[in-house]
Simulated scan of single mutants.
Amino acid sequence: MREPFLKRGPFLKRRPFAILAAGAVSAAVFAASGLAIVAGQAEAQDVVVEPAGPWACEPPDFDAGPAPMLGPVELRLVAGMLLAAQETVLGIRPDQAEAWRDYAGALVAMVPSGDRVERWLAPEGRAKAEAFDLVQDVADAAIERADKAKRLKQSVDVLKATLTPEQMALVAKTQARLVERVARLIEWQRGESFGAPL
């Protein structure tokens, strides 16, 4: 009585390449059959079949409309939550709380309020605009941002003098991770290879 094919050890030992070749041929035939079916359906429906690109495994694009954007209030809330988490991780003590609050407030104030943009988004606001109002708004916004940046810089100087060396080291470590993620995001947007997912 002959042994089943899979139990024939000598065949498997002597012919691994034959098995691989048979698998490759089967895969090729299966792929060719699938392409033929797709091509036949496309021809019947007058659909142009385009070659698969590098992202062929991803689902096809679809128009889902614009993604929801965070407004100034939501952005400030997100910044506040992140700062609260960082305060907990750093272990801010009561004697450091005032310096931390000044820093956190100055940082959140850097988030654009959107007040100046709203004027130009509303039709009645645009109708009331006079000559050079847009340029003046841009200049005023830059001046206000510069003042807020100075306040932030001053609060950072005070905070650095308040934190312990261990807290400063933890801030530096967190900063390094943040910079790395931002750099990877920029490389991804430029189409460069960053070696690992975010």
Rank of each mutant, 00 (worst) to 15 (best):
R2Q: 15
E3S: 15
G9F: 09
F11N: 11
R14C: 04
R14V: 08
P16I: 13
P16F: 06
F17E: 15
L20V: 15
A21N: 04
A22H: 12
A24E: 08
V25G: 00
V29E: 06
A31S: 13
A31K: 09
S33N: 12
A36C: 10
A39Q: 09
Q41W: 04
A42P: 01
V47I: 11
V48A: 11
P51H: 03
E58A: 13
P60F: 02
F62R: 09
D63T: 03
D63C: 06
G65P: 12
G65F: 08
P66E: 14
P72R: 01
E74V: 02
E74L: 02
L77S: 01
G80C: 02
G80K: 00
M81E: 06
A85H: 14
I92E: 02
P94F: 01
D95W: 14
D95R: 15
D95Y: 12
A99V: 03
A99F: 00
W100H: 01
R101C: 07
A106Q: 10
L107Q: 07
V108G: 00
A109P: 03
A109W: 03
P112W: 00
P112K: 02
D115N: 05
E118A: 13
W120Q: 06
A129Q: 06
E130P: 00
A131M: 01
F132W: 13
D133K: 01
V135T: 03
V138F: 08
A139Q: 09
D140G: 06
K148L: 11
V156H: 05
V156S: 01
V158S: 14
K160Q: 14
T164D: 12
Q167R: 09
V171C: 11
A172K: 05
R177Y: 07
R177Q: 15
V179P: 10
R181N: 14
E187V: 01
F194E: 08
L198C: 12
